[in-house]
Design a protein around this nucleic acid. Sequence first.
DNA 1: ATAAAGGAGACTAGGTTGGTCATATATGTG
DNA 2: CACATATATGACCAACCTAGTCTCCTTTAT
Lengths: 151, 151
Amino acid sequence: MWISRKTDYATRAVLALAIADGQRLNAQDLSRRVAVPDAFMKQILMQLRDAGVVRSERGPSGGYRLNHDPADITLERIVRIFQGQLAPIECATRHEPQPCSMEIGCSLRTVWAEVRDATIAILERTDFATLAAQSGGSWVPVGLTTKPYTV
Amino acid sequence: MWISRKTDYATRAVLALAIADGQRLNAQDLSRRVAVPDAFMKQILMQLRDAGVVRSERGPSGGYRLNHDPADITLERIVRIFQGQLAPIECATRHEPQPCSMEIGCSLRTVWAEVRDATIAILERTDFATLAAQSGGSWVPVGLTTKPYTV
DNA sequence: ATAAAGGAGACTAGGTTGGTCATATATGTG
DNA sequence: CACATATATGACCAACCTAGTCTCCTTTAT
Ligand code: SF4
Ligand code: SF4
């Protein structure tokens, strides 16, 4: 239970943009498509923009679109933006692990490292082009009446 | 970073007891051996007792010992006691996943399920006899001067 | 000019984490 | 029995994190 709601929301947004296939979507539209409170969605989109994942255009008929080919955006990248390190415990991060007074000869730490590596492997090989393809072009919350992805 | 300090402390305690090989250790001794505040260690040992992992004896020269063969105690079991579900997100738990309005056709969810399965597989195949063996019979915090595991 | 969009940042209720402290109960030893 | 040493129980707490909201400002198409 370590994926925060915010991270989940962000991955939803990126997936929706990947499915939209280059179309520009505004924050409100996007927030309805992925069932996220729109004020919160805006905040999340800012972070995605700062991280270079999406780019924004202002003014009426402005909005957001992906900054790269969906095939080049991995789930690992999005998760890292919002969650930081992927190791289950601080002593087992790949980069600058936090020292622990028990770490000498700690066999637990190698297990956590295994979990870390397995997790990273899965998230790195998962890109949003594949995820979009698996969604078959349609992915909407239950109860959304407006036709999805048609202006 | 989803393993809480408490869970880490609990796994340390169980590993120390596994290394002690059936010897009875009291809370204070144990707390020094694994570098955990002793009042907190007691609280954790209560939870481990309630879960049936350790058994306790009261009075002078009382203490705790493992309730089963270390080979029969998996890391998965200890983690579940303190953390509950192992899935990275509520919608992807094996038992009674939390419904989500986006779940129909959600390709993200299958990825989280992959992460869940990989994690569980590693933690289930890791038992404390193996972990103890890998520690080579000695595992103490830096700075502990008293001879470990010799009365 | 106006309206529709993004941008920046302060604020917060409620829950979780990582503990502490006081007190009661059980038991081995002399 | 008295006493020291242990576990047992439960209340309590500060700090931090989560999941948001709200207000006001700037940009831009028409
Ligand atoms: S005890 Fe081992 S697993 Fe736990 S934090 Fe220290 S090094 Fe890591
Ligand atoms: S959007 Fe998909 S991954 Fe996220 S919570 Fe809903 S079902 Fe799970």
